[in-house]
Amino acid sequence: MQTNSPVIALVGATATGKTDLAVGLAHALNGEVINADSMQFYKGMDIGTAKATLAEREGIAHHLLDIYHLNMEASVAEFQKLAREKVCEIRSRGKTPIITGGSGLYMRAALDILEFPPTDDELRERLSNEVHQLGSRHLIEELKSVDPTAAERIKDERRIIRAVEVYRLTGRPFSSFMPRRQYHPEMLPVVQIGLRIDRARLHERIEQRVEAMVDDGWIPEVQRLLAEGLADAPTASRAIGYRQMMDFLVDDTTQQAAMDSTIVATRRFARRQETWFKADPRVRWIDAEAPDLKIQALDVIKSS
């Protein structure tokens, strides 16, 4: 039974309780959960990514977890395709799709009109060699003539090369591919709910989470993943905490130093997440520690 139930998007910083709320809303709305956390795509990266256990999922179907092996590189464009397919599939069963995760770009890729321009490795290498030999001045001038908007915004050499590459491949200005805060028609209707929390309390929760992860067996998990190639994994190796724990396991640091470094890095990441999501005026914010959190979230959905 096809429905046009809203896509519920739960956003906010790490450790604010998005997963628990997603499960609660799924029970209330006959929903299923779609993961938008890029590091939870990887098989075996469970404890360190705070991936919901089977018990924590409480029988609710969760999608786009454990879809990649470590040696695969996560792709925003591929996620966009998969997430939208899951939304259509869930709606076709008469259920409510609930997307949750702290990866802001992945969430926008699923919800918004967002195009991904093509790439050409050979052309990019040629442009990179030109810059190495001649400098970037001539590419900047080319960009000014074909895409003054991008030329004004972009100062980084790598992105200048990318902008010229896109124009030469498509004939379209790179700036024309920039995302807009406009939901894709296939996703409508959409309700975005953000979980906010006092900064001091968030820092406390992050510290508690890291300590709990270690207690739950995170270090043995990293040892196993190292044997499977984590150190050379193109995307998975960049997950916050895993690099720190790998350093501990090869005796480059102590366990406590690795934990402290993970806590600091996670706090920084949380601030970036808050900045990203707060810039979107469509997000309806509620207190993550409110005793009636689920009721508030349901009220937001009903009133939207």
Rank of each mutant, 00 (worst) to 15 (best):
N4Q: 11
P6C: 14
L10G: 09
V11R: 06
A13T: 07
A13G: 14
A15N: 13
A15T: 08
T19I: 07
T19D: 09
D20N: 10
D20H: 09
A26V: 09
H27K: 08
A28F: 04
L29F: 08
G31E: 15
E32W: 07
V33S: 13
I34N: 02
I34A: 10
M39T: 02
M39S: 05
Q40W: 03
F41V: 05
Y42R: 02
Y42I: 00
K43H: 04
K43W: 01
K43F: 00
G44N: 08
G44V: 04
M45E: 11
G48E: 13
L54V: 05
E56I: 03
I60G: 04
L65S: 05
D66G: 04
I67L: 15
I67E: 15
H69N: 15
S75C: 12
V76S: 13
V76I: 14
A77M: 12
E85S: 00
C88H: 10
C88A: 11
I90Q: 08
S92P: 03
P97C: 12
I99G: 04
I99L: 15
G104S: 11
Y106P: 00
Y106I: 01
M107V: 10
R108G: 00
A109T: 03
A109P: 00
D112G: 04
E115Q: 15
F116K: 09
F116G: 11
P117N: 13
D121A: 15
R124K: 14
R124W: 07
E125A: 03
N129P: 00
L134Y: 10
S136Y: 02
H138S: 14
H138A: 14
I140D: 08
I140Y: 12
I140T: 07
L143R: 06
K144E: 13
V146K: 02
P148S: 12
P148G: 03
P148W: 08
A151N: 13
E152G: 04
E157D: 11
R158F: 07
R162S: 08
A163C: 10
V164F: 06
E165P: 14
Y167V: 14
R172S: 11
P173H: 08
S175P: 13
S176F: 00
Q182L: 11
Y183E: 01
H184Y: 01
H184I: 01
L195F: 11
I197N: 02
R199V: 09
R201G: 03
R201Q: 10
R201E: 15
R201D: 15
E204H: 01
E207Q: 01
Q208S: 03
E211W: 01
A212N: 03
D215H: 07
G217T: 02
G217D: 01
W218F: 14
E221Q: 07
D232H: 08
A233V: 06
P234A: 01
P234Y: 03
R238T: 04
A239R: 07
I240P: 03
V250F: 05
T253G: 12
T253D: 14
Q255K: 14
A258Q: 05
T262P: 05
V264N: 06
R267H: 06
R268N: 12
R271W: 06
Q273V: 09
Q273F: 02
W276K: 04
W276T: 05
K278L: 10
P281T: 07
R282V: 07
R282Y: 07
V283A: 08
D287N: 13
P291V: 15
P291F: 11
D292L: 11
L293C: 02
L293D: 09
K294L: 08
K294M: 00
Q296C: 12
L298P: 11
V300S: 00
S303L: 01
S304F: 02
